[in-house]
Simulated assay, not measured.
Amino acid sequence: MTNIVLLADYPQHRQQVINWLWQAFGSENSRAFFASVVDSGLRGADLPITFIALQGDELVGTVGLWRCDLI
């Protein structure tokens, strides 16, 4: 069974989520940008917000809502 939960409730998966976002959408110099977006959500901002998919304890996916992702 897969559960969709807030990353803020499972911050131990922060690094993997950042890596996935950076690898999928980033460039050589954009890793810090993706880290800042994820970290902003972990601090309790309304947006961005990051959700993760867990199968048991295993991280299997992520999705996020950002104010603007076309920067």
Rank of each mutant, 00 (worst) to 15 (best):
S36Q: 12
Q23H: 12
D69T: 13
Q55W: 03
V5H: 04
L65W: 13
F25Q: 11
A32K: 09
R67Q: 13
W66K: 00
A53H: 07
N29P: 02
A53R: 07
L7E: 05
F34Q: 04
E28Y: 05
A45F: 04
D9W: 01
W66G: 03
S27W: 04
R67K: 13
R14K: 15
D57R: 06
S27L: 08
Q23A: 14
V60D: 05
I4V: 15
Y10F: 15
M1T: 14
M1P: 14
Q15C: 02
C68V: 10
L6Q: 09
D39T: 13
I52T: 11
V17Q: 01
I18R: 00
S36P: 04
G61T: 04
G56W: 04
W22C: 08
T50F: 06
I71N: 12
G26C: 11
M1L: 13
L59G: 12
F51L: 03
L7D: 09
Q16N: 01
D69W: 10
V5L: 15
E28T: 13
S36T: 10
L21F: 05
R67A: 12
A53T: 11
F25Y: 15
L54S: 07
D39C: 10
I18M: 02
Q15K: 13
W22Q: 10
D9V: 06
L6C: 00
R67N: 14
V38H: 09
Y10H: 15
N19E: 13
N3T: 14
G61M: 02
V37T: 08
G61Y: 01
N19R: 08
R14G: 07
L59V: 02
L42N: 10
T2H: 03
V38P: 13
F51H: 08
M1W: 06
A8S: 15
D46L: 07
L70E: 09
Q55G: 07
V38Y: 05
T50I: 07
Q23M: 09
D39R: 06
I49P: 02
A8P: 13
F34Y: 15
D69Y: 09
S40L: 08
P48F: 01
H13L: 02
D57G: 04
F34W: 15
V38I: 14
L54H: 06
I52R: 01
L54N: 11
V60H: 01
E28W: 00
E58N: 14
N3M: 11
I18N: 02
M1K: 11
Q16G: 02
R31Q: 15
S36G: 12
G41E: 00
I52L: 06
D69E: 09
N29Q: 11
T62L: 04
A8L: 09
V37I: 15
V38L: 04
W66P: 05
S40Y: 00
D9C: 09
L7C: 12
I52G: 11
